[in-house]
């Protein structure tokens, strides 16, 4: 608290430097988290999840020989530990230097999420990869990624120097797209951990038809993943149209990026089936899913921020003065 009270006494240059450092650190943590998601995807793709049967140690040691499946499983644990430590540091940094209470709270939430994620990772090993725990582990990974991406955005100079924009088509459709992508990641996690990735062996058709006979849960969840992918693609197109119409170049660029990602993601999904779940393809599919979610989130959050410099121009009409609750959303 003393540090926050003293925050105003610092000269502007030093404060700006610290803010830039905090932002860079938050971005670094987000990148490390994406790497962690890739490492987690590799563990599942190579079916190495149980190559280390104990937890928190690995074969009773901190560093087992990195042979065979252990390379992936223990490598995942090492990256996870690093991300955990980065998150601890980020939360402390935010607690000491971040004036906005909601950002500090988001840092604490990220810390709680990464601890819970570590525990879930351990439980999924000790209980021999039960689908429920493995799916929870996969989904919390995406939630944690969203938290650190939000922190990276909220600590950016553009965000700090911006004002609040009214809810718009971009923010509304973007929020819906975030929810839809998250649901798709949930369905994908169930499909992956239930080993239903090849339950429908052909692509783009399903058993040579548009609508296959649903003969098992595996076929049902696999087909649901494909159907919902179409819904997600539709929402992403809607996001793109809204972003372009907003006449905000930053949003339009993010919208284009989102659309490109969804195209890549659908191609990777098809390639995953056609290559019989080739490890690099299946893992890239997981990583692109996370990137898709983060980009939709960035678009949605970005739509609610507007540069203050534009307050006198076209943006004035959509900028909202923040008298009440301004500190909660600054």
């Amino acid at each position: 608290m003393a540090a926050r009270r003293g925050f105003g006494k610092r000269d502007a240059g030093r404060a700006a430097g610290e803010n830039a450092g905090l932002h860079r650190f938050a971005v670094f943590t987000a990148c490390a988290t994406l790497l962690l998601i890739v490492a987690g995807g590799l563990v599942t793709s190579t079916e190495s999840g149980l190559s280390v049967p104990d937890w928190p140690l690995s074969y009773g040691r901190l560093m087992p020989p990195m042979v065979g499946g252990i390379f992936y499983e223990h490598g995942h644990r090492m990256i996870a530990t690093t991300v955990g430590l980065l998150t601890v540091l980020l939360a402390i940094w935010l607690a000491r230097r971040e004036p906005r209470a909601w950002v500090r709270r988001l840092g604490y939430a990220a810390l709680a999420a990464v601890v819970a994620q570590g525990v879930l990772g351990g439980l999924t090993v000790l209980f021999l990869l039960p689908t429920a725990i493995s799916v929870a582990h996969a989904c919390l990974a995406q939630t944690f990624f969203c938290l650190v991406v939000t922190l990276a955005l909220a600590t950016s100079p553009r965000w700090r120097d911006g004002g609040i924009a009214e809810a718009s088509a971009v923010s509304r459709i973007g929020a819906a797209a975030v929810a839809a992508i998250f649901l798709q990641l949930l369905i994908g996690a169930v499909m992956r951990h239930d080993k239903a990735g090849l339950a429908i062996p052909d692509f783009p058709l399903a058993f040579g038809r548009v609508v296959p006979d649903i003969t098992s849960f595996a076929v049902a969840i696999h087909y649901a993943h494909r159907v919902w992918a179409v819904v997600v693609a539709g929402m992403v197109i809607a996001c793109l149209v809204a972003a372009v119409r907003s006449r905000r170049p930053g949003l339009a660029r993010t919208g284009v990026g989102l659309a490109l990602l969804v195209v890549v993601q659908i191609l990777l999904g098809g390639a995953t089936v056609l290559t019989r779940k080739a490890v690099p393809i299946a893992t890239a599919h997981v990583a692109t899913g996370a990137l898709l979610l983060a980009t939709a989130l960035a678009l949605t959050l970005g739509a609610r921020r507007i540069p203050l410099a534009r307050a006198g121009g076209r943006g004035a009409a959509e900028a909202v003065p923040p008298p009440r609750g301004a500190m909660a959303w600054k």
Binding site: A2, V88, I92, W93, A95, R96
Partner: peptide
Amino acid sequence: MLKRSLLLFLLVP
């Protein structure tokens, strides 16, 4: 304060 936090951060793990 930052130094103290860093020290704590290193000691706890």
